[in-house]
Each structure stands twice: as structure tokens, then as C-alpha cells.
Amino acid sequence: MSTNNLAEQTSAFETINGVGTVDLSVQTVRDLNQALHDQHDDMTIEKWDVLNPKGHHNLAVGVNQKLKIDIHGPAGYYCAGMNQEAEITIHGHTGQGVAENMMSGLVRVKGNASSAAGATAHGGLLVIEGDAGSRCGISMKGVDILVKGSVGHMSCFMGQAGVLAVCGDAGEALGDSLYEAHIYVKGSVKSLGADCIEKEMRAEHIEELTELFERAGVTDQDPRDFKRYGSARQLYNFKVDNAGAY
């Protein structure tokens, strides 16, 4: 089987019971991503299995079709980055930047994620069933992120839009320099970042979390156990009192 001859792209994977199967102990990451991208214009195979990922970087990056992709093992950096529409499940841990800049679709990490999970993502849903490292949801721009474990320091830094819900604890400087992202944490928060404050949990927020849990398939959480954090809006607008600082 060819691993890198572009003329034989279609042989870079096997189809087993209608499921496109790419074994990374034989094929390359380039083979995998090309096979997934080839489904963009004309989807012939909806389901994909990725075998032996062994921490490779850049798996299933830039997918823009309603594919269902299962990565059977741990992934390296930037897995599922820039995802549009696909449903990608990582049956293992992921390195930094999982689902970074996601536009739409669903990325689910069964294990732990390293730093910068969901960084700058515009849309879609990222579910991390374990813990996330530092800077989870940094500069998020509309993605919804649900972490069943805890998140590290500087999470949701400069978060602009979307929801970060954490069922465990949050590390230092949560929501530093926050814009309009909504943060919900069930456990403790080590410290809040600049301009991030605790806010009242109103009916619409219970509703927002209930809807997020439903979409994420989470049934063991009660939205009323969560606290809400948001921007005090003192930092991101120009204030004439601060003019001397420029």
C-alpha cells in the first residue's frame, strides 16, 4: 500500500465494513488528513477510524465535512484543529491545542487534554472528559467547552464569546482580561484574573448550562451547583481616566 504517492491517494486507507480506516503505524499523518479532506466535495465515506495514533501531531486537522472520526489512542498537538462540522472523538489523551480554532462540529476527548485546549475557537462544542491543562479556552471566540475534570491556570484568558463550563476546579487567574465569554465552575477557583468577577446565576444561565449538558451528553451534573464568572467590563473599554497611561 502506498503511503505517500499522491496519485494513489485512495489506497492510503482501507475501508472496513464501510468505515475508512487509517493505521498510522503504516500510513502517514499526511495520508490521513488528505483522505479526510478528499471527503469535502463529495462525501463517500462518513465514518473513519484512526488506529495507532501514538501521540502524532496534527491529526484530523482542517476537516470540513460532517464526518464521524474516532481516534483510537492518544494524540499529540493540535488534534482536530480548525474543525468544521465533523464529530471527532479521541479515545485517549491529547497534547496542547486540541480543537484550536474550531469553527463548528464536536470534538470529544476521552482522557486529559494538555494546555490551550479550544484556543481561539469560533464555534462548535469541545468536551474534555478528563482534566484540561493551562490556558483552556484562551481567546475563545464562540466555542462552547465543557470540561468534566479541572482546568489549569489562565483558562479563558481574553475569552470573547462562548461558554466554558468546568465540573471540577479552576487554576489561578481564571478569566483574566475577559471579554464576553461565560464561565461556569462547579468546584473551587484558585484565583480570578484581572477584571473577572463572580456573577449572579440567573434563570437564563441555568438554561444555558442545561442546554450545554444536553448537547454534550452529560447527565450527572446539576446546573444549580455551578457558580458563574464574567467580565466586570472595567478593562476592555477605553476609559478617559486611564489616558495618562498611553
Binding site: 501514538k54 501521540g55 502524532h56 492518544p74 499529540g76 489523551h93 497534547g95
Partner: peptide, 8 residues
Amino acid sequence: ASEYQALT
């Protein structure tokens, strides 16, 4: 390790 790849 710096990356998981080194542990596989």
C-alpha cells in the same frame, strides 16, 4: 518526556 510520542 516533552511529548507523549517519546513514551509510546
